[in-house]
């Protein structure tokens, strides 16, 4: 009860500050739209897809997972600014739940990601993408879990390194191979065996496959439950670890 209330309090505050920043709202909404409008025309020929709709079924889930990963991974920068302003220290002297300090922030990131995801999906519908609502909701769940994990990890790392100069290269080094080896932008169907083998160790690769299966209407596919399980476990681990950083962080 107290925990839910504390989480809501932090979530409200963070959301309010986010909405107050017009630049963020602009970037957050228009960036994905640009991807869709400027990248999409290249898709059909590039993916060798029979129709535009088929190309979207492959590209849109990848784009959404990409947004979930990056939307989360770079949230740590905001936290470092808060750390520097003394806001975190001030929160940590109150009896507020440490998990709530993390979760309130991460949930804000999840919600803002989902808003982006809905906008993209609606736009893609205009381009003849068709997906069942139940499948779509499960795909959103997957995205929410990914964003929860990456944002929690980003917050945890931010509390550990405490400086933008250390956080930026760290996040880039993590993000780049993860991105290249997950088949996010282009599926790895035609990748050579060794590349496939590496990708099998990349949890995001499983998440992308699962999301693609959902967009393809293939609810029964093993990839769906595998992707969901892997992201759920990783999200839980990320949240627990990051909340512990909130509990013990030394300036």
């Amino acid at each position: 009860m107290k925990f839910a209330r504390d989480t809501w309090l932090i979530f409200q505050r963070q959301t309010q500050l986010l909405l107050r920043n017009p630049v963020w709202v602009f970037v957050g909404v228009f960036q994905p739209v640009m991807y869709l409008l400027l990248f999409a025309p290249l898709l059909k020929p590039a993916l060798n897809a029979p129709t535009q709709a088929a190309a979207y079924k492959i590209f849109v889930p990848g784009l959404l997972v990409l947004l979930a990963i990056f939307g989360g991974l770079f949230q740590g920068f905001g936290l470092i600014a808060e750390l520097r302003a003394g806001v975190i220290e001030r929160s940590r002297v109150t009896p507020i739940s440490r998990l709530a300090l993390l979760l309130g922030r991460s949930l804000r990131d999840v919600v803002s990601l989902l808003v982006q995801a809905v906008i993209i999906t609606l736009l893609a519908l205009l381009f003849d993408l068709r997906v069942f609502i139940g499948d779509l909701l499960l795909a959103y769940l997957m995205l929410a879990l990914i964003a929860l994990m990456t944002s929690a990890v980003s917050y945890g790392v931010a509390l550990k390194v405490k400086s933008e100069d250390a956080l930026a290269p760290l996040m880039n080094t993590v993000a780049q191979p993860v991105l290249l080896l997950s088949g996010i932008l282009l599926p790895l169907t035609f990748a050579p065996g060794w590349l496939q083998a590496i990708a099998d160790w990349n949890p995001f690769s499983w998440a992308v496959d699962g999301t693609r299966a959902l967009f393809a209407g293939d609810l029964g596919s093993d990839k769906v439950w595998q992707g969901l399980t892997i992201t759920a476990v990783l999200a839980a681990l990320g949240v627990v670890w990051a909340a512990r950083q909130f509990a013990r962080s030394v300036r």
Binding site: L17, R20, N21, G86
Partner: peptide, 10 residues
């Protein structure tokens, strides 16, 4: 705290 504790945008 010594170094301040308020957020610029609030």
């Amino acid at each position: 705290p010594q170094g301040g504790s308020t957020w610029d945008e609030s």
